Every structure is written in structure tokens, then in C-alpha cells.
Simulated assay, not measured.
Amino acid sequence: MKIENLGPKSGAKRRKRRVGRGIAAGQGASCGFGMRGQKSRSGTGTKAGFEGGQMPLYRRVPKLKHFPLVNQKYYTTINVKALGSLPAKTEVTLNSLLEDGIVTNNDGPLKILGDGELKVALNVKAAAFTKSATEKIEAAGGTCEVITN
């Protein structure tokens, strides 16, 4: 089989409509576009969304929701359950977690999230804590200290 042998299946292609060839052809004179108006003229039509000069919908709709945060804070996040493998009374900081391999990359200040359980008393120093994380660390006998970077 060669490329020059390829073609559409018989009956798949229809012949082109021949317009403007007399009244008997069914598409004579105005070629099925009507008598007058913008859509009967030759050339391109209107652009997408054009409403005849009326203020188009995409410009009428208010664009107020979901503003991007300008000075968004990015944190290195970790859950409480990941701290359970550390020995008791350990001081937990971002650098100590990087050294232990619990956190693999530094995406900004450390934030402790409250998913999971903690049985070990730890002294955690981080930039931010969720309320549930603070409760779980203190319930296990540890302390939470907020540090600023």
C-alpha cells in the first residue's frame, strides 16, 4: 500500500454545492443567503462574540471573583503523623527535618499540619501551625513555638 493509493471510501465524499447557477438548480441568484444583510455579503462574517454593536456578554459579565493573591505565602508543609518517628524531647525545626530526610525540599518557612496522631513529646519550632496540629502536639506533652523568618 502506498500513500498515492489512499483515499476516502466510496460514498464518503459529497460533491460541492454549486450555487448561483440559475433558478432550476435550487440555489440560484442569492445562493441561499437571502436578499440582503450582513450574512448575505461576501467575505468573512463577524468575529466570535460580536453582538451587532451591543456590549457583548464577555464584557458585560462582572470579573470580580477569584482574584489571585498578590503576596502569597508559600510554606514547607508537613503533617503531625510524620513527626511520630522522631525520638522524645527532640527540637524540631526545618533544618533538623531536612537533615533527618523527613522533608526533602525547602519550599519556604515550615508549617505544621494536623493530619494523623502524635504519641511523642516534641519541641516544635515552625513559622505556622494549624489549630489541630497545636492541640495534638501539646496533648502529647510537647511545645509549639512560632518563629518568624
Rank of each mutant, 00 (worst) to 15 (best):
L98T: 00
I3M: 13
E91W: 03
V70I: 07
F129K: 00
P87H: 04
T46P: 12
L122H: 05
E135H: 07
E138Y: 13
G37Q: 00
E99W: 13
P8D: 03
L86W: 00
N106V: 01
P87Q: 10
A88E: 13
L113S: 00
N105A: 14
K125C: 06
E99K: 08
G116W: 11
P56H: 02
L110H: 01
L69H: 10
K73Y: 06
K65H: 09
G22S: 04
K47E: 14
E51M: 03
F33K: 09
K89N: 14
S42Y: 10
V70L: 12
T148C: 05
F33H: 05
I102Y: 04
M35Q: 13
T148Q: 14
F67N: 13
R59Y: 12
A24N: 10
A126R: 01
V70E: 03
K9C: 07
K63P: 00
A133E: 00
G52M: 12
P109W: 01
L64H: 14
V103L: 11
T46L: 15
T77W: 03
R60F: 06
A24T: 11
K131E: 09
A140N: 13
T90S: 14
A12N: 14
E145S: 07
G49S: 04
P8S: 15
L57H: 05
L98S: 03
D107E: 11
L64M: 11
G101M: 14
L122S: 03
C144P: 14
I23R: 12
L69N: 05
R59P: 09
T104F: 14
N123W: 04
Y58H: 15
N71H: 07
P62Q: 15
N106M: 02
D107F: 13
K9W: 11
G43E: 04
T77I: 14
G32W: 04
G108Y: 02
I147L: 15
T104R: 15
M55T: 11
L118K: 00
A127F: 07
T77Q: 09
T76N: 03
A140Q: 08
V124Q: 06
A126V: 00
K73I: 07
V92Y: 02
P8R: 13
K125A: 05
R15V: 04
G141V: 07
L83N: 01
N95Y: 01
K47H: 11
G43N: 02
S85V: 13
G108D: 05
K13V: 15
Y58T: 10
G108R: 02
G37P: 00
V146A: 01
L86S: 01
G108I: 00
Y74A: 05
I3V: 11
L83I: 09
V19M: 15
R18W: 08
G32I: 00
R18A: 12
T104N: 06
T44Q: 10
K119S: 08
A25I: 14
M35G: 06
E51P: 09
K9Y: 13
R21H: 07
V61Y: 14
A88S: 10
L64R: 15
